[in-house]
Computed example of a mutant assay.
Amino acid sequence: MRTLIVDDERLARNELRRLLQAYDQIEIVGEAVNGEDALEKIKELRPELLFLDIQMPGKNGFEVLMELKENVPEVIFTTAYDEYALKAFEFNALDYLLKPIEPQRLDAAIQRLEANEPNERPLTQGSSAEPEQKILGEFDQVFVKDGDKCWFVTLGKVRLFESIGNYVRLHFDHHKPLILRSLNALDERLDSNVFFRANRKHIINLRMIETIEPYFSGGLVVRLKGGDRIEISRRQAIRFKELLSL
C-alpha cells in the first residue's frame, strides 16, 4: 500500500519509517513536513494511506483532510495528544496512535487496515448482534462516554468490568464511568487470554492481579491493582486455575 508519512518532526518521521520496515505490504512513497507540503505530495504521489500528524505549522491534519475533494487516502492519525480522538473518528480514521508509537498498537492498526475494518468502535455504541465483530485485546483502544465526559482508553488499562443493572462500570486509573452495555456482550468481545469472567457480575484483567487467595467452597479471591477484591466463583475457579497453570 502506497504510504505517505506526514509529520513536522523529523525524528518522529524517522521512527515511524523504522517501525514500518517490518511490514512488506507498506510502501513508503514519501514524507511531508507540514499541511501544505502534505497536500502537494498527496496530489503528486497518490498515496493510498496517510500516517497523519494533527498539530503542525500552518494547516493541521484535520484541515488537510478537509481540503481533499477526491481520492482521499485511508488515514491513521499519529499525535502526542489524546484530546483530538473524538474529532479524529468524525473523519473516519482507521486508527489513532499516540506518540511515542508502541509497536503493538502499530501492529493492531496494520492488521485492521489489512482486514479493511473500521477503527475501534465506541463501547457506548453498536450492537452485540453485529456479525463477526473483532475480538478486542489489551492493546486496542476504545471510546468510553459517560454523560459529558469521554475517554480514549487502551483496554489493557481497564482492571475491572462490573455489571450494574443494564450498565457496565469500567474501572481504570481513578475513573469509573458507566456504559450502556451488558456484561455478557462485553464478555463475547474481549480477549479471553487477558480478560476473565470471574463471576456473574465481574470481568477482571488478568494482568492486573496482585494476589490470589483461597475462598469459601473452593472459590478464590483476587486483589487487583487499585485495591479491588473480586471473588472468583467455584465454577470459574476451575477454569481460572487451568488458564494460569503451566
Results as ranks from 00 to 15, higher is better:
236 Q>L: 03
218 G>S: 06
39 L>W: 03
124 T>K: 06
242 E>K: 15
10 R>T: 09
161 F>H: 10
199 N>I: 04
239 R>G: 04
201 K>W: 01
199 N>S: 09
92 N>Q: 14
133 Q>S: 10
140 D>A: 08
167 Y>S: 12
69 K>V: 11
89 F>K: 01
207 R>M: 11
12 A>E: 00
26 I>D: 01
77 F>M: 01
95 D>T: 02
28 I>D: 02
7 D>G: 01
244 L>I: 14
113 L>W: 04
231 E>G: 06
14 N>M: 12
147 G>A: 03
129 A>R: 15
123 L>H: 07
27 E>I: 00
171 H>T: 02
154 T>G: 12
153 V>C: 08
192 S>N: 14
220 L>H: 00
222 V>S: 12
220 L>W: 00
19 L>V: 05
57 P>R: 10
48 E>N: 07
167 Y>Q: 11
182 S>Y: 10
3 T>M: 08
187 D>N: 15
77 F>K: 00
102 E>H: 15
184 N>E: 14
143 F>T: 00
94 L>E: 00
167 Y>E: 05
127 S>L: 12
54 I>A: 09
35 G>M: 08
235 R>P: 00
114 E>M: 15
108 A>M: 07
246 L>R: 10
143 F>P: 00
116 N>S: 13
237 A>R: 01
28 I>K: 11
64 V>N: 02
125 Q>M: 14
61 G>I: 02
126 G>F: 06
229 R>L: 09
76 I>Y: 01
234 R>T: 11
225 K>H: 13
163 S>D: 06
97 L>C: 12
177 P>G: 13
162 E>L: 06
13 R>E: 00
234 R>E: 02
23 Y>A: 10
51 F>W: 07
117 E>I: 04
148 D>I: 14
172 F>L: 02
124 T>N: 15
86 L>T: 05
41 K>L: 08
137 G>E: 04
144 V>P: 06
95 D>H: 08
133 Q>F: 05
151 W>T: 01
221 V>K: 15
221 V>E: 13
120 E>W: 04
146 D>E: 07
174 H>K: 15
11 L>N: 11
174 H>A: 15
36 E>I: 13
65 L>T: 04
201 K>C: 03
160 L>Q: 08
50 L>R: 09
176 K>T: 13
68 L>S: 09
19 L>Q: 14
128 S>W: 14
174 H>R: 12
1 M>A: 09
108 A>T: 12
93 A>C: 13
37 D>P: 07
67 E>S: 13
65 L>C: 06
236 Q>F: 03
104 Q>V: 11
142 V>R: 05
23 Y>N: 08
122 P>K: 10
139 F>H: 15
228 D>H: 09
65 L>K: 08
222 V>F: 04
79 T>E: 00
50 L>K: 02
26 I>V: 11
187 D>T: 13
92 N>G: 01
8 D>G: 06
155 L>F: 04
211 T>C: 03
187 D>V: 02
245 S>A: 14
86 L>E: 03
103 P>I: 10
27 E>D: 15
189 R>S: 14
118 P>T: 01
238 I>N: 07
139 F>T: 13
182 S>W: 12
191 D>E: 14
176 K>S: 10
126 G>Y: 03
30 G>F: 07
31 E>T: 12
209 I>L: 07
222 V>E: 03
208 M>Q: 09
216 F>S: 10
